[in-house]
């Protein structure tokens, strides 16, 4: 194999090592080298958000990163949102509120919405809509997704007080 770079990073809290060619996107590396197929490719150009991940806590499109850029970073994917068998409130409200139809965009929405609520626990509807504008959904018209995020915010704030 030519030019396979060794990458060491943290994924969903676990230290991992993998090899990837330098031109491989982090998206492909996560999916093929680490088996994290919850990270989806919808466009490969940063326009749909299906591959949303966190990098040192910041929301990113995995398709817009070269795999070696992950060196030393903390990566978070949809697979790391639930704690053991304990779903995150967002996962619960997405299920309860029917905020998914086909489900291909769901992982990206969950990652993006979690970043939003981590940073802004009481977002307005408009703030939610703009925070999720980088995530395309073609099935739901967004209505139930926005409601699910609002409901999760209420639950998270209730749990805190």
């Amino acid at each position: 194999m030519i030019n396979r770079t060794h990458v060491h990073c943290t994924v969903n809290g676990d230290e991992v090592d993998f090899l990837a060619t330098d031109s491989t996107s982090l998206l492909d590396a996560l999916r093929t080298e680490l088996g994290l197929t919850g990270v989806k490719e919808g466009c490969g150009t940063g326009d749909c958000g299906a591959c949303s991940i966190t990098v040192d806590g910041a929301l990113n499109c995995a398709c817009l990163m070269f795999a070696p850029e992950a060196e030393g970073r903390e990566i978070g994917t949809v697979e790391g949102i639930a704690q053991g068998d304990h779903l995150h409130p967002l996962q619960e409200t997405f299920l309860e509120g029917a905020a998914l139809q086909c489900g291909i965009c769901t992982p990206g929405f969950l990652v993006a919405a979690k970043v939003l609520l981590d940073e802004n626990p009481t977002p307005t509807e408009t703030e939610i809509r703009y925070a999720l504008a980088g995530n395309l959904c073609r099935c739901t018209g967004y209505d139930k997704i926005i409601h699910a995020v609002q409901e999760a915010a209420v639950q998270l704030n209730g749990a805190k007080s």
Binding site: R31, L36, T37, G38, V39, K40, E41, T77, V78, E79, I81, A82, L87, Q91, F94, L95, L100, G103, I104, T106, P107, L110
Partner: peptide
Amino acid sequence: GLDKVTGKARFAAD
């Protein structure tokens, strides 16, 4: 639903 909110659902490319 559970598989789809946890990233486990298997789509063809997966």
